[in-house]
Amino acid sequence: MVNMPERWEQESWEVLPPGGIIPEAGNSVRYETGSWRALRPVVDMEKCTHCMICWLFCPDSALLAEGGYFRGFALSHCKGCGICALECPPKCIRMVPEGSFAQEGA
């Protein structure tokens, strides 16, 4: 395991690993793809059956699960693609424009 600097973007070419290789497993956790999001998934927990279909389909592992139950979205990594909303059997996920959360400062 190579110790990678926390902020690679400040490092010179002489320090970075060669050829775009990422010698550190799982560091995409630090890449907050949630900043790209235009639509935010919002769940109606009264309709949710905890079937976990959304968890299975999410391409970014941005659904939180605990003990076999759905526990919400990891918004720092959710890109807002809407696959969860499309696949949800009881249709309890809505995609809401980020702008409508602006006043909450979210």
Binding site: M1, V2, W8, E9, S12, W13, E14, L16, P17, P18, G19, G20, I21, I22, P23, A25
Partner: peptide, 28 residues
């Protein structure tokens, strides 16, 4: 950085943004 070394997992050939691409070429 062999891809098959399971004790030292690496990613080979990721997308590299403008933040890093120039540096990678300078290395070459």
């Amino acid at each position: 950085y062999p891809l098959l070394d399971l004790k030292a997992p690496v990613t080979v050939g990721p997308i590299v943004s403008p933040t890093y691409y120039f540096e990678m070429k300078r290395q070459a």
